[in-house]
């Protein structure tokens, strides 16, 4: 009976989520801010295949065909830059803030 739980309890149970769309060879939005423990979903809306690959290799979507999605939970605060392995001029940034700053 999840629906019966108060909204605050739900927020505590489920990680917050953000979505990055890959469209026209760009990550949209190019920079997002989330909090530690949040989940980010990458969605490839392009006809071309792409990846979302961290420069520090802390995450890697592998190849995303059209319509494919990839999710990653960011446990630790920090600034994570990523790019597309197939089109290395495509860049994006995930800023992960500590949970306490929420």
């Amino acid at each position: 009976m999840i629906a019966a739980l108060p909204a605050i309890a739900l927020a505590a149970l489920l990680p917050a989520a953000a979505i990055v769309h890959i469209k026209n060879f760009t990550y949209v939005p190019a920079t997002i801010r989330v909090h530690a423990g949040d989940r980010v979903t990458f969605v490839n809306d392009d006809d071309e295949a792409h990846t979302a690959t961290a420069l520090d290799k802390s995450f890697d979507s592998d190849g995303l065909g059209t319509g494919d999605t990839y999710q990653h939970v960011f446990p630790k605060p920090g600034t994570y830059r990523y790019f597309c392995e197939m089109h290395p001029y495509m860049h994006g940034t995930i800023v992960v803030l500590p949970r306490s700053s929420q």
């Binding site: 295949a49 990846t51 890697d60 592998d62 190849g63 392995e85 197939m86």
Partner: peptide, 12 residues
Amino acid sequence: LLALPGEHDAIG
């Protein structure tokens, strides 16, 4: 056959 990799073959 000789086959070279393209960037799509090098994902990951």
